[in-house]
Amino acid sequence: MKIDDLEKTTSEDLGVLPSVVRRNILKLGLVVTGMYLGGSILSLTSVRNVYGAGVVPEVGKYPYNPHYSMVIREKLCIDCEQCKEACVKTNHVPAYGFRTTILEKRRSLGGEKFETTFMPVLCNHCNRPPCVRVCPTTATWKDEKTGIVTMNPGRCIGCKTCMTACPYNARYFKEETRAVDKCDFCFESRLSKGQTTTACVEACPADVRVFGNLADPKSRVFKLVHAPETMIWVLRPETGAIPNIYYINS
């Protein structure tokens, strides 16, 4: 068969399914895996649904300004891991640790076919951060201005309670500084020096990660999070931490 013949054949991929069907299948998958709006089948509690609130706060009800947050356009991630490399370089992350990483989901498409989705994860800079609550010496706190969950390495006693408290495995103990280390949205390495974005965002070739001020209606994160007909989810909403990393598929 030549290319010309092939072009006449109809495609058998998912593109031929009506979009409603595709969307319903996708929604079902996310509901089952407990990620869609708190999940309603596998998730232990469905807090968001119970109280009728979405994972996205009401406009104007962001507690910080700038309210730094990140939107992850998950479907576009190709796991090239340039974000990881940039993070390691920018923030001097040792070989045994990471501030951000890529996980891999797999969903069956029937038969032997499956669809892979790469899921970048990092500190969610939660509005109600469990790590901050448990720290005995306030070595980690939520910055009052930016909402960034920050560390003061000199205050850290190394009890590692924040590591057990974090629902996102976002923290590790860095022997070099004798303190727990974590993503600070590159505040120390970049934002505080006048740059406007994080190293991982800058490194991403697929425009997966979008960083910005959620409290600013002109920002791209605001527009993505408040776009119509967009499904937005967060990870582990049942912990009540109110994360600030939003995942979308469009």
Partner: peptide, 25 residues
Amino acid sequence: GSCHDGSAAFASNTRCTSCHIGARG
């Protein structure tokens, strides 16, 4: 992209992970 244009085969700007297996893959 000669075939992967959305008509002969799925378009190059869709279904990224069909070909991009990533560092993990």
